[in-house]
Computed example of a mutant assay.
Amino acid sequence: MTMATAQKPLLRATKLSKIYKSGRSLLPSRRQQVHAVNEVSLEVMPGETLGIVGESGCGKSSLGRCLTRLQDISSGRLEFDGRDITDLSLRQIRPLRREMQMVFQDPAASLNARRRVGDLLAEPFRIHGIGARSEIEDRVSELLRRVGLRSEHALRFPHEFSGGQKQRIGIARALALHPKLLVADEPVSALDVSIQAQIINLLAELREEFGLTYVFIAHDLAVVRQISNRVAVMYLGAIVEVGDADEVFSTPRHPYTRVLREAMPEPRLHAKRPERAQVKGDLPSPFSPPPGCPFHTRCAFAKERREVQRPALVKAADGRAVACHYPLDGPHPTGLA
């Protein structure tokens, strides 16, 4: 993997929050609020891949859409390449779309079924006024070739492709304007395992070839570990642990990270399966999150302090950051269930 060497972050989020309103009441005060993203702070360095993992409903996709300003930010600050883009209007943010792009989870839903693939890939060039018609056609053919498709595929409609091929088209569209940042939201979760590996390898090749920076969102820890330099673990809208991918998976310091790590399937032939950490209950409702530490309702190490005081994300000398009153340092304690 290409490790980030620059000191200046390409993307920096500071106490970023996204609140959704729920219900049909005409009075805003009576509508329920969902804190999908709750004061998230993170940095993404040029050339690196930051993986974001967590259970379904933890706010990963909402965070990804906020990072690309596809959704408005409720509070906090977002900087891209040294520029504050938190409150930019649609007109102001439009030129920056060339610099940041997104690959969506469902390629079929993100592609217009009524338009041919060639038109879909040519659209970014037309919107930004790049190239003449013949030049655009050549660029479309090159994009298709680069993601493993043929130039004649430009004449087909999205429904004529498999799921893996549709995702390749989505990646090609995201790469059309040579962005600096690519946010991939569960890009392989809807694909077969063999196709997942092909897409992951393709993303890794493109990162090296174009010098891309990735924010890779997924719930599959094995996939995230394969492609990421660093990992941010998300729980109930907040980041609970951030660090080097190998270190986070080998020696997790947050109890929730350890549960996720040990939920990864590991083939063990003719050997007794070791006792694994388990988690109690289900993810709390985002409409009424628990007070204090958001994980204390499911953690065996929960104490009074966890129920009244929310832990801050504290960065250690080795670069690891953990939001836990009682981090798992050294040998893992037993009996998480």
Results as ranks from 00 to 15, higher is better:
K15M: 09
H178K: 14
R98S: 15
V117G: 00
R310S: 05
L175H: 01
G23Q: 10
A302Q: 06
S22I: 15
E205S: 13
S285F: 11
E99Q: 06
I227H: 01
Q198F: 09
T68P: 01
I19M: 06
P294L: 05
H270F: 13
L111C: 07
T334Y: 00
L67C: 13
E142C: 07
F157K: 12
D84T: 10
P291D: 03
E304P: 03
R225I: 10
S250L: 08
E262M: 12
S189A: 15
L191F: 14
H332Y: 05
M100R: 05
E205C: 09
I217H: 05
L70Q: 13
L120N: 03
M100L: 12
L96D: 04
L177K: 03
P255E: 10
F287I: 13
T49M: 00
H35Y: 10
A337N: 12
D244R: 05
A113W: 11
E123C: 15
R305W: 11
E48F: 03
G335A: 09
R97N: 15
P158S: 09
R69K: 13
E99T: 04
P179C: 06
P333E: 03
P274D: 09
S134F: 07
G82Q: 11
N229T: 04
G129W: 11
P158I: 01
Q105C: 13
P311D: 09
V44P: 00
I85T: 08
A204T: 14
C324L: 10
P289S: 12
V53H: 04
D192W: 13
R114H: 14
F295H: 02
H325I: 09
R320Q: 15
Y235S: 04
G118L: 07
G164M: 04
I130N: 03
P265E: 14
I130V: 15
R83L: 08
M1T: 08
L336Q: 07
E307T: 09
